[in-house]
Design a protein around this nucleic acid. Sequence first.
DNA 1: CAGAAATGGTTAATTCGATTAGCTTTCAGC
DNA 2: GCTGAAAGCTAATCGAATTAACCATTTCTG
Lengths: 187, 187
Amino acid sequence: MPRAGLDPPAVVAAGAALADEVGFANLTMGLLAERVGVRTPSLYKHVGGQEDLNRRIAALALSEAADAVGGAVQGYAGRDALAAAARAFRAFVVAHPGRYAATIGAEPSGSDDPLATAGQRLLDAFTAVLRGYEIAESDVDHALRMLRSLCHGFATLQAANGFQWSADIDASFEWLITFADRGLRTC
Amino acid sequence: MPRAGLDPPAVVAAGAALADEVGFANLTMGLLAERVGVRTPSLYKHVGGQEDLNRRIAALALSEAADAVGGAVQGYAGRDALAAAARAFRAFVVAHPGRYAATIGAEPSGSDDPLATAGQRLLDAFTAVLRGYEIAESDVDHALRMLRSLCHGFATLQAANGFQWSADIDASFEWLITFADRGLRTC
DNA sequence: CAGAAATGGTTAATTCGATTAGCTTTCAGC
DNA sequence: GCTGAAAGCTAATCGAATTAACCATTTCTG
């Protein structure tokens, strides 16, 4: 019996990819094992179980989202930065609905949890966007939560097909960016 | 063996209440059966299965949310209506996190699906709020999606304990209402 | 009021997925 | 070439959903 050459990162990456394909709710240990060419119990040599797998997928997703948003913002400020960040975030969620779904309801255990670290990096990326606006120190936290709620809400609603009626979703998102920009400039 | 006097609405209501108590992810057919004083298979006389139960709980949650938001808005207009709607919505989600979680990822099958009907009623309640603002006809859909994303995003992030740092969450929500109101008045 | 039909409940059995235990094989380092 | 840890495997356990088959209670009807 040949070795499959697995390690925890490989298993988590495969799990994330599989979640994107079949949906997070349909991600099963057996399906993942089949995908990586191994019997189900062997996965437990690399991850602690489904709970652990889910948390690791969530951490991976947040980390990738942070990279995407952070990278997109480089070199931009103000409205351009806001638009780049929002678009990058939404593009990530739409491209990777399965792994992003893993982040919903995943609570970090402590501040040294990779999940918390990755989440913080994503927050930092959005915080950088806010520096392009003249926002009172006391309002930064509020504005950050607003941005996060807006992006998270829009992306998850779209991913869940929550926008039933027909108006163009891309146009709505651009409208939303303009709305947020105008609001932030008049804080 | 005495009859338990169950019917589909009673089972769904009990399931929703149980989801609020133990969390939607921990809602199990066996737990629900125990709660209503019946053996597990008996539940299948009232609901089609877990999938069906989840959809019905979601429909109930959306319907209740629509009632809450619609009722809160009565007699108000403009900023007052917006604030009342947003607060009612968030209060509902915070008070009933389990049943609201059922609505995430629940897709209506057709337009006669009770889930779709309830969702539409909730949308209508928010649409009424927008009538208090002078918004171009072409922007109403966008504004509605913005409001929905904002409320849904904030509520789910809070329910998932997604706001890790310490600034007061209630204050952020009030700030967010003010932000949305100011933006909508300058559409 | 008898009795048939529908309704709501039961136990027993099946299936499926997660997880654990215990054994075996590969591989790195000596 | 040994040897121990790491990575697989099979077999077994467990819990939860679902189905099948059967029984009791209500309700409607003649």
